[in-house]
Simulated scan of single mutants.
Amino acid sequence: MRISPLPKSLFSEILNLKKGKILLLGGPDTGKTYLLERLVNLLKRKVSLGVIDCDLGQSRVGPPTTIGWAKIGKSFKFGKNLRVRDFYFVGSLSPAGNIKRSLKGVKFILKKIDPQINILLIDTTGYIKGEEAVDFKIKKINLIKPDLIIALQKKKELEDILKNVKLKRLFIMRPYPKVKRKSFTERAKYRDNCFKRYFSSGEKFLFGKSIFKRLNRKDKDFIDKIVSLQDKQGKDLALGKIIAEKEKDFLILTPLKKPKKIVRGVIGLCKWKLMP
């Protein structure tokens, strides 16, 4: 295992990979997203590049509550809207308590990746502490089978994960010291802005309650819940927000332009209310 404060030798190792999956692993505020940006800027003109974002609460690819993937063009710049190729609605802002659906989402997205993609960068959540989190990360790594894991580790907090997976290549780095620790409020504000952008062009449509299944079967309070709107194959076409409830229908805000395609839906675990 090599430990490096800066990924200078990492870049040449990635270029030598030529084709494969690269997974970024680390706790919260270790610089995974910053590293992702650096790798994208380095590689976007050299290889056919794709990104999967598994960070349900702080996603850069697709709206919160989803796992999505995008193809990165040569002129791509972070801060611009990514054209999401496919997404899977997990329905929560963290994999905690929603492990099976999170893993199902990763499996679904992996099958959707364009075979022309040479390098696939996979960003993950900072969910690493506790038995459930460690087991989840092990299962995710075994599912993805990455060709290279880049682990951002402060001390030995990732060892319980790394020692229990088959590793092809591993590169261990210190977390970026200049990465600012995000407060709960800052993370919530980021999600709020993501949802605002996503629903900014939305329209309101009535959908029958009978087409929806609930991730929480005990749920009875539906106002402001985030939902997925699906076609007859069960493909997520768009998200929606329940804004009113009638006897047999939900009134839902969604950017979807062709609501007639919707024959199924999933009511997620989280709500979104506009922050003051």
Rank of each mutant, 00 (worst) to 15 (best):
K111Q: 15
I113N: 13
I113H: 12
D114E: 11
P115T: 00
Q116G: 08
Q116M: 09
Q116D: 13
I117W: 08
I117V: 15
L121H: 00
I122E: 14
D123N: 15
D123G: 11
T124P: 13
T124D: 08
G126P: 15
G126E: 11
G126W: 12
Y127S: 15
I128W: 15
K129A: 12
G130K: 10
E132L: 07
E132F: 07
A133Y: 15
A133G: 14
V134E: 14
V134S: 10
D135H: 12
F136I: 10
F136N: 08
F136M: 10
F136E: 11
K137I: 13
I138L: 10
K139C: 06
K140G: 12
K140F: 13
I141G: 02
N142E: 15
N142A: 09
L143K: 05
I144N: 13
K145H: 10
D147N: 02
L148R: 00
L148G: 06
I149F: 04
I150A: 11
I150M: 11
I150K: 03
A151C: 05
L152R: 06
L152H: 09
K155C: 04
K156R: 11
K156Y: 14
K156M: 12
L158C: 08
L158R: 00
L158Y: 01
E159K: 13
D160W: 04
I161V: 08
I161Y: 05
K163F: 03
K163H: 00
V165L: 09
V165P: 05
V165F: 11
V165D: 06
V165M: 08
K166W: 10
L167A: 02
L167R: 02
L167I: 13
K168F: 09
R169N: 04
L170G: 01
L170Y: 03
M173K: 07
R174D: 12
Y176P: 04
Y176D: 06
Y176L: 11
Y176N: 12
Y176I: 12
P177Q: 02
K178E: 06
K178M: 00
V179K: 02
K180A: 08
R181P: 00
K182Q: 14
S183Q: 04
F184R: 07
F184M: 05
T185P: 01
E186W: 02
E186V: 02
R187P: 07
K189V: 08
K189L: 11
Y190P: 04
N193I: 05
N193G: 10
C194H: 02
F195E: 02
F195L: 03
F195V: 09
F195R: 01
F195G: 03
R197T: 15
F199I: 04
S200W: 02
S200K: 04
S201Q: 07
G202Y: 07
G202S: 07
K204E: 13
L206C: 14
L206S: 15
F207K: 05
F207Q: 06
K209E: 01
S210G: 07
S210D: 09
I211A: 07
F212H: 13
K213R: 00
L215T: 01
N216C: 12
R217W: 09
K218E: 15
D219R: 06
K220R: 15
D221M: 04
D221L: 03
D221V: 01
F222W: 02
F222S: 05
F222Q: 02
F222A: 06
D224A: 00
D224V: 06
K225S: 08
I226Q: 07
I226N: 09
I226L: 03
S228W: 08
Q230F: 04
K232V: 13
G234C: 03
L237E: 04
L237T: 02
L237V: 03
A238T: 00
L239T: 08
K241A: 03
